[in-house]
Design a protein around this nucleic acid. Structure first.
Lengths: 126, 126
DNA sequence: ATTACTGTATTAACATATTGATACAGTGAA
DNA sequence: TTCACTGTATCAATATGTTAATACAGTAAT
């Protein structure tokens, strides 16, 4: 089971349902959970974490909307076979990157300087 | 006066104090307000926008912490002479960019793909 | 049909963030 | 000092976001 892979920091300002989402996303991205592999049921995970089932349900519902997992009453949830494609992910990232650029413009930084900063960032990456 | 340059959308989910901050930042970035130029007083702006003085005060206080403006009781606020330097802005942007990269990693997108997406983004910019 | 699991929906409790009401304190000019 | 303006601090009202309590409904095996 993947229960041991999921850890929550209850003192963090990041809401629990959000931490659950991130955990599951990591687990699927790392291919620990492959297509159609079952997730712990809502009640199983909620009692393991000692939290309300609704909190897990919210995380699962949003992951389902993001096409990362799928599920049905009586059957549980499982890693989706239609996980977001590379192309879909890139579209989502472009959206995020746009917001980043807007922030830069808000700060009065020219696109050229942003470009240069990013080049440097990747160059210095190890 | 720069009152006419400031417009707030009260139906937006973005809080009013945040919108005020962005407005002022734009005005200063565009050099409409130069070093030591006075801003409207807290009460002047709050009555112009028909909102509580505290909301404007919060915006001004945070802008002051970001060194974008400065002020004193009895004197009002003015555009700071020590506006964040280009270097300081870049440091702040690097921080934002790091968060962006983390999101990408969370989504399971390789740094190479991110790099490629960004190159394309700048290439297609007009 | 019964049982024992699944997910879902509704409502309330609670925490946090945002805005407002109001009183207080600093500055400088008359 | 007095006045008319500044910003500041404290607390309450409100809106929003998060989690919990609880009851409901779907699925499959017996």
């Amino acid at each position: 089971m993947i229960l041991k892979e999921i850890s929550i920091n209850f003192t963090s300002p990041v809401p629990v349902y959000e931490q659950i989402k991130r955990n599951i996303k990591h687990i699927i991205a790392k291919d620990i959970l492959k297509t159609n592999d079952p997730l712990p049921s809502i009640r199983e995970l909620s009692s393991f974490l000692k939290i309300n089932p609704n909190t897990v349900a919210r995380a699962y519902r949003e992951l389902q909307q993001e096409k990362i997992i799928d599920g049905r009453p009586g059957k549980g949830f499982w890693a989706s076979s239609k996980k977001p494609s590379g192309k879909e992910k890139i579209v989502m990232l472009e959206d995020e990157f746009n917001k980043f650029i807007e922030k830069a413009v808000d700060m009065g930084v020219s696109p050229e300087s942003v470009k240069e900063m990013i080049s440097k960032y990747f160059r210095e990456e190890k």
